[in-house]
């Protein structure tokens, strides 16, 4: 892009972008630069002295079992968020799109959990998962599946899956909402045409509706992956990363190091690592998806 705008259109575009870019620089670039700088220092968060330590904070993290465990948990969350809440949201939207009585009521119910603050989600699911008298264990016992009941939030091997259940409940409403709107956006003629050609509902969905849902899908998948990397609130409100780090993700670890242990420098190194990891995992994906939309448009 040359510095002198070539046309009235380009000038307008630059004017439109000025305010967002200005805000972005102040509220994102500057804090990130501050974090990168801090990650090279040893600082307790309160002292006037910050000691430069080079890459020591990074060296201390990488290879540490606690750090690796959190990275793996983040990756597991990405895999989960891309598939489960998204899949359930799509399925519910597709079923409800068939024109069912009480549609509005179902729509409200599926969206409801998404409106709840994280701290309340944590408190509610602490009861759901209470291992002896909670709703989940009690229900399983009632239907004769008591053997499947687990120490949901207390077993290091189970806890992340349990939290995923709570998060699926919390966030599926978002995927549902976007997919439902997307399905309603599909012109009726496309569906009719396919039906006249004798396609079954199943075929029509996958061959006609689903490809036309691309714009919705891009949004849902992109946001899900990002939420998975940034995940913090619900874990902090429910287990604080425990027991013994089992459910810890990077954002939780960063918080614990910064304010639980007065290690701001190391916490910043976790933050920067998280940023880099997110960029590596997610940016190519978003880029790819964005290009696909453009290509589809150009055709």
């Amino acid at each position: 892009m040359s510095l002198i705008p070539r046309s009235r259109t380009a000038r307008a575009h630059i004017l439109f972008l000025a305010v967002p870019i200005l805000l972005f620089g102040a509220f994102y670039i500057y804090p990130i630069a501050a974090s990168v700088r801090l990650s090279l220092h040893d600082w307790n968060g309160f002292s006037p002295d910050q000691r430069f330590v080079g890459l020591r904070n990074y060296a201390a993290l990488w290879g540490q079992p606690r750090f690796i465990n959190a990275v793996l948990n983040n990756l597991a969350w990405v895999a989960f968020m891309l598939t489960v809440p998204t899949g359930i949201g799509l399925a519910l939207a597709a079923i409800l799109d068939r024109g069912i009585r009480g549609e509005t009521m179902f729509r409200i119910i599926f969206f409801l959990p998404f409106t709840i603050p994280a701290v309340s989600v944590g408190a509610i699911w602490r009861w759901m998962y209470e291992p002896s008298n909670g709703l989940l264990t009690t229900t399983l016992e009632l239907v004769g599946l008591g053997g499947l009941a687990q120490n949901w939030l207390g077993d290091p091997d189970i806890v992340t899956f349990a939290l995923m259940g709570a998060v699926a409940w919390w966030t599926t409403g978002f995927a549902f909402l976007v997919f439902f709107a997307g399905l309603r956006n599909i012109p009726e003629e496309c569906i009719e045409a396919a039906r006249i050609e004798g396609g079954s509902d199943w075929q029509i969905f996958w061959k006609v509706s689903f490809p036309l849902l691309w714009p919705s899908t891009i949004i849902v998948l992109g946001i899900s992956a990002i939420d998975a990397m940034r995940l913090f609130d619900v874990i902090w409100a429910t287990t604080k990363g425990g027991p013994a780090y089992a459910s810890e993700v990077l954002a939780v670890q960063m918080y614990d190091l910064a304010f639980g242990r007065f290690q701001m420098g190391r916490a910043s190194a976790v933050a920067v690592s998280l940023l880099v990891l997110s960029a590596v995992v997610i940016m190519p994906y978003i880029w790819y998806m964005t290009r696909r939309v453009q290509d589809a448009e150009v055709e």
Partner: peptide, 17 residues
């Protein structure tokens, strides 16, 4: 691309600035 990278920033780190 630049604006999108903002989505990856964990908000906890921007607190002090």
């Amino acid at each position: 691309f630049l604006l999108l990278t903002g989505m990856l920033v964990p908000f906890q780190i921007v607190q002090i600035p």
